[in-house]
Design a binder for these strands. Sequence first.
DNA 1: GCGTCCAGGTCTACC
DNA 2: GGTAGACCTGGACGC
Length: 302
Amino acid sequence: MHTTSITIPTPCNFNFWRTVYSHGWCALPPFKIDKDAQAFERILELSDRLLVRCVMKATGKGITVQCHSQKPLNATHKQEIHSQLRACLRLTEDMASFYAEASRLRKFQWVPRMGAGRMLRSPTVFEDVVKMICTTNCSWALTEIMVGNLTTKLGRKFESGAYSFPTPQALAETTEKFFRKEIRSGYRSPYLLELGERVASGKLDMELWRSSTLPTDELFKQVRAVKGMGDYAAGNIMKLLGRYDYLGLDSWVRGKFYELHKNGRKVTDKTIEKYYAPYGKWQGLFFWLEMTKDWYDHKFPF
DNA sequence: GCGTCCAGGTCTACC
DNA sequence: GGTAGACCTGGACGC
């Protein structure tokens, strides 16, 4: 086993743990939090199929990454690790205009102060979409089961015992029966199989979505057209594409809104949407940050 | 241990 | 455009 250390520089407004804990993705493999070591891990698969276990820690210089691999890393490998992790931690995004807007609003002045607002994402849009489908219409426990099964049964095993996230090809080469029996994805199974097939065959290139210049509503339509992606799932995928015009309501955030703004009284989705509409293109991000503000009281919120 | 009920989004058919 | 019912699983609950 070879170990290589690389450093990813970070801007002064970047907060490593606030980004890691921005939502539930940090608890789903191939991501892993090691609370004892105060480290955040990820198994990456590079373009030459090399698996690398990356152990990230925040330091004064930025993020130090210990990269464990079966063979020595060359410059291309290092560049690819750098690029994938920067994409995951949203270091590719300029937060200046969002922070300027947050600073103008008294109730959100804590956001730039805390370095909040960067939402963790996967190295690929494909992984984000698969995981998002696995969050629909089920408990978080079932999401963990489905994603865990996807990695252990269709991903590749690293020496540490951890697994990579499966490729679109790996999904495409299975059957609906396999998804139902082994992944426990139930009625979502044909959606996941179709997604794998479309991406593997090149009929759908969702990786382009991150750099798309399409108007937000057009991009939303494309995301929404993927089977299994309804308003909740597509709205949240949009946030991971850097577009925050949609709220992506689910039962947990609805309940949190009722609790924070209506003394627990239920209101319609339209009422929630009307409440955040004045925040314009940032409404989805302000909404999510408000719903999760209490997470910021703890270094390890969950 | 077994059976029943419920929560959780999306899709499809229908009005 | 809105709505009802089906989809499937794990967990809670009662027996």
